[in-house]
Simulated assay, not measured.
Amino acid sequence: MASSILFFGFLALSFIHALASDPGSLQDFCVADETSNVIVNGLACKDPEMVQADDFSFSGLHLAGNTSNAVGSRVTTVNVAQIPGLNTLGISLVRIDYAPWGINPPHTHPRGTEILTVIEGSLEVGFVTSNPENRLITKVLQKGDVFVFPIGLVHFQRSVGNGNAVAIAALSSQNPGVITIANAVFGSTPEIPSDILVKAFQLDKNVVNYLQSKF
């Protein structure tokens, strides 16, 4: 009797685990067919006989991004759009360049956890936990340090010091997406009605109108 209970308990746990994870791959790869009109959750597969080494490679990550912009950073993405062979593999990569005191503004990745390592310089990094705690977890990283940003949570990085900084980050999705908070809130198309933002942020309407004009 006890063994039967344990057996069915194991089956239940296995079933729950199966529902909570992505299905295993049923083939070696599924290189994205960018010419296909088939709509799927991801991208349709290219004929395996047509696959080449270039479908799995990308050149240029050694090049510094141009940080001459308002936030002083530049993100170079390497996801399924750059490497079709990443399709269905659940991983992607970015290089982030920072000018002195440049920031990668508060943002989220709705479909991926991020693990970041500092290649050059020093970075102040952090993320905010979900409601109601909204706890800020932050740390200053040096060259070679690693930090994890859990999926979906608002996070940021800032270069600290007078030199440039560089980081490489991997994300647990072929296309993790990015929602930059300020752009989404104040720069949506069409605009979020200003009276909603006035009440949400407890700001004067003129301030909200100004912020919307900046994005």
Rank of each mutant, 00 (worst) to 15 (best):
A12V: 14
S130W: 13
G161W: 00
N134V: 04
H155G: 04
T108Y: 14
E133G: 01
L26V: 11
S159V: 03
F127H: 04
R135P: 09
Q157D: 00
A182V: 06
I5T: 07
I179S: 07
N41L: 06
A70R: 14
Q202D: 13
N37R: 03
A170H: 05
P106I: 14
V71W: 14
A169K: 15
C30E: 00
F58D: 10
F127A: 11
T67K: 10
I179C: 11
S173L: 06
N104R: 03
P110T: 06
N134W: 08
V75Y: 04
P48Y: 11
D54I: 09
G85P: 04
L141D: 01
V78E: 00
P176L: 02
V146G: 07
S57H: 15
P23H: 11
D55F: 05
R95E: 08
F10I: 10
I179V: 10
I181A: 12
L211K: 02
A70N: 11
V140S: 13
F147C: 15
S130N: 13
V78Q: 04
G121F: 04
G24P: 06
E124M: 15
A200I: 02
I96S: 14
A184E: 02
A53I: 08
Y98P: 05
H17R: 12
L123H: 01
V160F: 08
Q142H: 06
N175H: 06
L136F: 03
S130D: 03
D145I: 00
K205E: 13
L89T: 14
S4A: 14
E133P: 00
F8E: 09
K214F: 10
D22S: 12
G65H: 03
S14D: 15
V38F: 00
L171F: 06
K139A: 04
F56P: 11
S122R: 08
V40P: 12
T113H: 09
F29Q: 05
L89W: 11
H62L: 14
T35E: 06
Q52P: 10
I119S: 15
S59F: 02
F15V: 12
S73L: 00
G42I: 08
F10K: 11
Q212E: 11
N37E: 15
F7N: 08
F8P: 05
H62D: 08
N183V: 15
V94E: 01
S172I: 05
G112P: 03
A167P: 00
L197V: 04
A44F: 14
G152H: 02
Q157F: 09
T35G: 04
T138N: 07
D204R: 07
K199P: 00
A184V: 09
R74W: 12
P150D: 05
P150L: 05
R135A: 14
H155D: 07
